[in-house]
Amino acid sequence: MEIWSAIKLKQSAPRCESNEFINLVDEYGDSIYKFCRSLTYSREDADDLFQETFLRVFEQLPKLNASGNPQGFLFSTSLYIWKSWKRKYARRKRLAPMERLDENRVSSVEMEDNIMMQEEIRIVREIVESLPEKYKIPLILYYTVEMSVTDIAAVLKLPQGTVKSRLFKGRELVEKGLAEIHYEK
């Protein structure tokens, strides 16, 4: 038992070099991952973005501390990397149906055989996906990451009023998209 503990301790030592970093991963890992999944087209890309975000943050821990807003710093970093990748590697997009954002939840819907609900979810997601970034990103932060307007403003470095107005406009565009489907012949 003692030997096992010693081995475990030795193996885990490098991971404990920075408790601060590990705490960050524990506290914000889930929400950053949701964000990454929403921004990217595949789980693989999301995993890459997630890793790259924390790699960058790991290197910039002093800056993160100085920011006084670790959440804002993390999401800004993630967003910055995503935009950089788009510039560097250009856009890669699958035309096949996107992977489901939440397999567990959808599968429960499938169990209920609720096709209408699936369609509803799929179409709203597609409309959001097609929105300009300035509307899409605030919507993802608000609805997927469940961030407050204040926090979104900090991440996007925008006044709160601008965030509110983009959320409003984003909702309006989604509603318009749905209405177009409804009213077209």
């Binding site: 999944r37 939440d102 979810i121 709203v124 609805y143």
Partner: peptide
Amino acid sequence: LLKEALSSTE
């Protein structure tokens, strides 16, 4: 609708 479509427990 947006809450339903975009929320995630992933």
